[in-house]
Design a protein around this nucleic acid. Structure first.
Lengths: 190, 190, 190, 190
DNA sequence: GATGAATGAGATTTCATTCAT
DNA sequence: GATGAATGAAATCTCATTCAT
């Protein structure tokens, strides 16, 4: 997106990224059912068969999209600060992402569903989600240790509630903010 | 399912129901991406072209499946009793459904995703979900009136939290029970 | 079309005729390419499979239509009178038919074209056309004997010219009248 | 048709032309009713799905055939010379075409009939025919100005007579020559 | 005679992928 | 690396016809 532009479409790793991005957009717009190599290629401006130089099979492209999409989402590393601030910050960031980039949720849900039948995808997604899950548990455990959690809230289960809610909330973007705010209110005592 | 079976495949409305059920199962197993008229027909034991006798187009079959699936799920009418019992019962029923029939959730999520691009499905699903939403709101409002709701819980938003959680929880069936139990605990004071 | 109506659709030979008429209309509207047993049956108001009781195969129905259509057209028997009047009358009748019932021409052209690959149809049509041809030749021969034909017009070839013109004229119904009038003018001297 | 053939099937525009020609032949042999993409492809020696690389839909192929067929026929531009010679020459050329290439007439009649229900074809064909019609009218007008037309022959109607005859004459190729000769005799005085 | 269900052959079209240039 | 042509498998849908009721 910066250099290597001499009047001709760029090649090399830029092309690779452009293809992943294009596939991501196609997926957001039409779902897996309508994800076509042709459309992805067209969006980048190359021939539909040239795409196979970068991604031998369609699955390879999909895997790259999974990597791209999951990386973006769960990587919300909370900043320094007390346990409560960090947890609050994380939930706030999730809220923001959901309203700022709704297509990301669509893509994640598509991938999640597809992962059910595709072990390769399942592993990648599970790996990323596990990172998030652990991070969440730590957050909640710290909050609990600080006495900032609602009574009877098990940190591990609380983490699942957040995950389940985020995934479900993306269904109806207009409610997502309120729901997560409620979650914040319910879970955190202080 | 009752009579008229003398060694020959049954016909009439039974066949219709069997096809819907078969499509439902195919959808649960392979998702929309792998939903094939051929497979549905084969599962019922008729020729793949005969299916068009009952459902002129694939979409017609899908619509019937939507109807079948959504009808099952949201129709959990809580019994008589006090507000708290009714709400508790409803949440418990949802918990039960999630663990008893996980494929139902898969199908619903497939449909939900597909509805994004298919207005016909969208309307059907939205109609059913609206019924559930209203029912939930009433339940929560009644509970609030009885002073049984956690402080600061708006009934409407609470309903959305339940919906979001249920939809999200179905992603990871193994956590669903705990999550909903927590929700119960958090939302309900008494 | 007259009797046997007791609140239920009629059967028997009336049904047969109705089916032929319906097929004729379908043929006029959509050509052979879109002639469907279903549509024919629907037009008469019976089930599409019941049609096979009257016409075992589609070809049988088509043959009946051929019979129906060709009978109508070529059967313009000229009345008594002098040779010139009879010929003039015949040409006038053709003119009239072309403008009154344009769909008849469409059907005949469809049949004519199809007859090229269907010996059964070919024979029926050829048989009918032969009758017309002979009748035309006699007319022209009589006119020639009466000295009423344009100089150098061979009766047999003149007959072919009329046939060719009528068949071609039906292509553009708006010109048909003028063209046949010109033919009258050119062929007949008196 | 010139170079680049080393034991492998030719590609590029040659393939395109070959497909049009093949479709034309199929149409001549079996009519629209039996025009199959499969057969066209087979005649050229490629897979039946490859044909869609050149003609996305069947209609596109048909349009190309229309273009091919109509271009051939009406483009008989008469040479220099007096009005009578030019008209005679044109009629003679038509006679020749009819006997030399009878399948062209078959195809044209198929197209003509189909154009009744297909606006796209109708326009193409109408456009071409209009060119022929105008050319004929000019010819006849010139001949009339030269006093070479039969008495009472309106040039415009005369043009229609020729068109109708040619179209009709193609039905019975064995009579076409005589009929057109008669037309020549009747129309032209000198 | 009429009906509804079923059949099976076949037609168009789509699409990931391969290959030679 | 890119391209255009070709492939082959598969999917939906159509339709004349048959069969049991």
């Amino acid at each position: 997106m910066t250099a290597t532009r001499r009047g001709r479409p760029p090649a090399g790793p830029e092309r690779w990224n452009a293809l992943v991005q294009a596939a991501y957009e196609c997926l957001a717009e039409g779902g897996f059912e309508r994800l076509r190599m042709r459309d992805v290629a067209a969006r980048v401006g190359i021939d539909h068969s040239s795409i196979h130089h970068h991604f031998p099979t369609k699955q390879d492209l999909v895997v790259a999209v999974v990597d791209h999409a999951t990386r973006q989402f769960w990587s919300t590393t909370p900043p320094d600060g007390g346990p409560v601030e960090r947890l609050r910050h994380h939930l706030a960031t999730l809220r923001q992402k959901i309203s700022d980039e709704p297509e990301l949720h669509i893509v994640l849900r598509e991938l999640d569903l597809r992962a059910r039948r595709d072990p390769e995808l399942r592993e990648i997604i599970a790996g990323r989600e596990e990172g998030w899950r652990n991070s969440l548990r730590t957050l909640l455990t710290d909050a609990a240790a600080a006495g900032a959690l609602a009574a009877g809230v098990d940190p591990a289960t609380g983490a699942e509630l957040v995950i389940a809610t985020v995934k479900g909330a993306s269904l109806a973007a207009e409610h997502a903010g309120d729901v997560l705010e409620l979650l914040d209110h319910l879970l955190i005592r202080a």
